[in-house]
Design a protein around this nucleic acid. Structure first.
Lengths: 202, 202
DNA sequence: GTCTATATACCGATAGAC
DNA sequence: GTCTATCGGTATATAGAC
């Protein structure tokens, strides 16, 4: 016989997290004030601190949520019959996220913040490792099925798959004329040159 | 008959810039206070504001200097007799910069800041374009000499050369076990698979 | 040119009524 | 659980003596 409804509590938390994410993406962590988040979420500061112990905790919660979403998506892909196709699908999914300017802004912000917050750095590192491990599983199976060159270590291959997606983000950030959607073909070409067996013996 | 010595003025500016760069790399732009910079530089805030109109101007000055340095280095490389070798040398140079944790921290910080400062964004974009244009010149000559596949547009090739170096930075930032020096070989392999003519007809 | 001292403003977090 | 009001701390930039 609880007096609180856990579902409602969770929904409100989500609402605050989403409002905050938009603020952080636009202005960065430090220049986003608690008042900004409260205005965006339509609540008071007293209420925000009822749900989160600090402004930083709101920021961190965004990436805890993101890590869970990523893990779920990859867990669903890991049993695919076409592992190489599944890898390419994941690359395309990650590239599509870039179309949302909010996601791109947050991605840069979290890395910058992680550089001086060891707790956040650990969270980011853990999520990143999980993504690479799941990709490595797919890549190992792709090699076993002869879809890609078996001589490349799956972990190394996974690292560079993620690295190439990273490059899509950094290039879009540094060069306003860079169109990620148009460059996805080149990315696939680079990946094929690196990993695909047939490209080595045409 | 000037009363001020321009060389001394410039030297002091440099000293402030270098002290500030170290602070910004460690704590980020927003969490670095003017007082921090002054302590690091051994001056007072009154003195700092004699050389720079604002804290942001100090930050920007770091990347104006960096842009000039990059342009100079690439201008010296652009006439090389071995253009493909020169490209690889530049890649190695940029990768080596990553060994300095200060440079890596600043790189993430400037991108995050550029996302909300259009003037800084313009500066970063301009510097980045200059690097890519010089690399494109080298890559075009490399194709003419048969060192690389001539069917790939030099501008696109240059974009991805820089993108792969970016990946070195992001991977080092996201994964503490990633060793850039060890991964340089894989980077070269990926570049070769993408660009080198002989890798397509071995 | 360099300093000290400070104006002015804002922010994160808390207290406590309802 | 949500609000209003506010405290304590800190930041950039300026003023003005030397």
């Amino acid at each position: 016989m609880r007096t609180v409804d856990p579902a409602k509590h969770e929904a409100k938390r989500r609402h605050i997290i989403e409002s905050a994410a938009s603020c952080f993406a636009r202005a960065g962590f430090d220049k986003t004030t608690v008042a900004d988040i409260c205005t965006a979420a339509g609540i008071s500061s007293g209420s925000l601190f009822h749900y989160f112990p600090s402004k930083r905790a709101v920021f961190t919660a965004i990436f805890e949520q993101d890590g869970r979403d990523n893990a779920e998506r990859l867990a669903a892909a890991v049993d695919s019959d076409d592992p190489w196709g599944a890898v390419l699908e994941q690359v395309e999914y990650m590239a599509r996220s870039l179309a949302d300017p909010e996601a791109a802004g947050l991605a840069f912000e979290v890395v910058a913040q992680a550089g001086r917050d060891s707790e956040l750095a650990e969270l980011v590192t853990r999520d990143d490792r999980e993504v690479r491990e799941k990709l490595a599983v797919l890549l190992r199976r792709a090699a076993q099925q002869g879809q890609i060159d078996a001589s490349i270590e799956p972990a190394t291959a996974a690292t560079w798959v993620v690295g190439l997606v990273d490059a899509l983000y950094t290039r879009a950030g540094a060069d306003s004329e860079f169109a990620p959607a148009e460059q996805l073909g080149t990315l696939r070409l680079i990946l094929a040159g690196f990993l695909r067996a047939e490209s080595r013996s045409p």
